[in-house]
C-alpha cells in the first residue's frame, strides 16, 4: 500500500499536465474522426444531454459568442441514450447549433469519453489549449459563461 501511495505521489508531481486523449469518435453526421483532429489551438468541450437543463442553458450561452473567435473549436459530447439519436438531431436542428468545421457534436454511445473524463453528473466543461486541459468545471449557472469567455479571450491573446 505504501509503495502504491508513493508511486501515485511521485507520478503526480512529475506529470501534472493533462493532455487530451486522442480517441476515435463518431460525429452526429455519421462521420468517424479522432478527438484531437477536431480541436483547434483553443477548444471548448462540453458533455451534455437533451434532458439536462443546465447543459442546454450553457450551450445557448456559449453559442452567443463562440463564432467571434476564428481559432476556437467547440466540441459538444452528447451522452443521451443511443435510442435517442433522433431527438438529439431534432434538438440540434431546432436550436440551430452553428455546426461547421469548428463546431462538432460527438455521440458518446458507449460512454467511452464520459467514463474517461469522469463526466457524470453533467454538464462538464473543459477548455483546452494545444490539446492540454487548462480549465475544468462541473455544473452551470447563468453567468459562468462570462468566466468561460474570459479564459478563452485570455488564452487567445497569450
Amino acid at each position: 500500500m505504501k509503495k502504491i501511495i508513493i508511486f501515485f505521489l511521485v507520478f503526480q508531481n512529475i506529470f501534472s499536465q493533462d493532455n487530451l486523449p486522442n480517441f476515435s469518435v463518431k460525429l452526429l453526421n455519421n462521420q468517424s474522426s479522432n478527438l484531437v483532429s477536431l480541436t483547434n489551438e483553443i477548444s471548448l468541450i462540453s458533455f451534455w444531454a437533451t434532458w439536462c437543463l443546465p447543459c442546454i442553458k450553457e450551450i445557448d450561452k456559449i453559442n452567443t459568442f463562440v463564432k467571434d473567435y476564428d481559432n476556437l473549436s467547440v466540441i459538444l459530447i452528447n451522452t443521451d441514450k443511443a435510442g435517442e439519436i433522433a431527438k438529439v438531431k431534432r434538438f440540434v436542428k431546432t436550436k440551430r447549433f452553428p455546426l461547421d468545421n469548428n463546431y462538432h457534436i460527438i455521440m458518446d454511445y458507449n460512454q467511452k469519453l464520459s467514463r474517461s473524463f469522469n463526466a457524470q453528473p453533467i454538464p462538464l466543461t473543459l477548455i483546452t489549449k494545444n490539446n492540454r486541459i487548462i480549465y475544468r468545471k462541473r455544473g452551470f449557472n447563468v453567468g459562468d459563461e462570462i468566466e468561460i469567455k474570459n479564459i478563452i479571450e485570455q488564452e487567445i491573446i497569450e
Binding site: Q12, F15, D18, P21
Partner: peptide, 12 residues
Amino acid sequence: SLLFSQISFVNE
C-alpha cells in the same frame, strides 16, 4: 516519460 511523448494523470 522517455517512452511516451504525452502523459496525463487526472484524479477526482
